[in-house]
């Protein structure tokens, strides 16, 4: 994919972008990811810092949605209790393909502090829905959120459109 004109004057002569259709679509998809946010515990507080102007999560093209039908990915930030786990699964199933999941923090990665004695905590959200990116930490720093978001964009950029599991550039 490339721009067929000079970068200092992009619209000279109309401006043409050449590329494969998959790459063009992925370019758009990865830069406008809307998310459904599950703020379940303390990690969500860190996510608030991430959303505020200092770190500005929206520059990745993300917009928080309140409906799973408008969301591209789920952000699970915090402790997933069994009561919540069932609701997460229902909402995940309501999302349209292609859909992604980012799991934030030790709790939603593996149960975290509740790993051994938490009678009410699901030991990792990947036990009920498939997770694309894990962000470690208790809670992760906003820089880790940024890294995780970039990893997700990287992943989307590589995907073939009609087959989510196939990578572009491989046979």
């Amino acid at each position: 994919m490339g721009l067929l004109n000079r970068l200092d004057d992009p619209y000279e002569g109309g401006g043409i972008v050449l590329g494969k259709i998959e790459e063009l679509l992925n370019w758009g998809r990865s830069k406008s990811d809307w998310y459904l946010h599950f703020g379940l515990a303390c990690c969500a507080i860190e996510f608030m810092a991430m959303n505020a102007s200092h770190f500005d999560f929206m520059r990745f093209g993300t917009i928080p949605r309140t409906s799973p039908r408008q969301a591209d990915f789920i952000m699970v930030t915090g402790t997933v209790t069994f009561k919540m786990a069932e609701r997460i699964k229902i909402l995940y199933e309501q999302m349209a393909e292609p859909k992604y999941v980012i799991s934030v923090g030790s709790c939603s990665n593996s149960g975290g502090p509740y790993w051994e004695h938490g009678y009410h905590v699901l030991k990792g959200v990947d036990r009920i829905i498939p997770v694309d990116v894990y962000i470690p930490g208790c809670p992760p720093r906003p820089e880790a959120f940024e890294e995780g978001m970039m990893k997700l964009q990287e992943k989307i950029n590589k995907q073939a459109i009609f087959n989510k599991r196939k990578l572009l550039g491989t046979e």
């Binding site: 069994f82 051994e116 030991k123 009920i128």
Partner: peptide
């Protein structure tokens, strides 16, 4: 387990 989800 709870509703098919393993607890530990």
């Amino acid at each position: 387990s709870y509703h098919g989800m393993k607890i530990s």
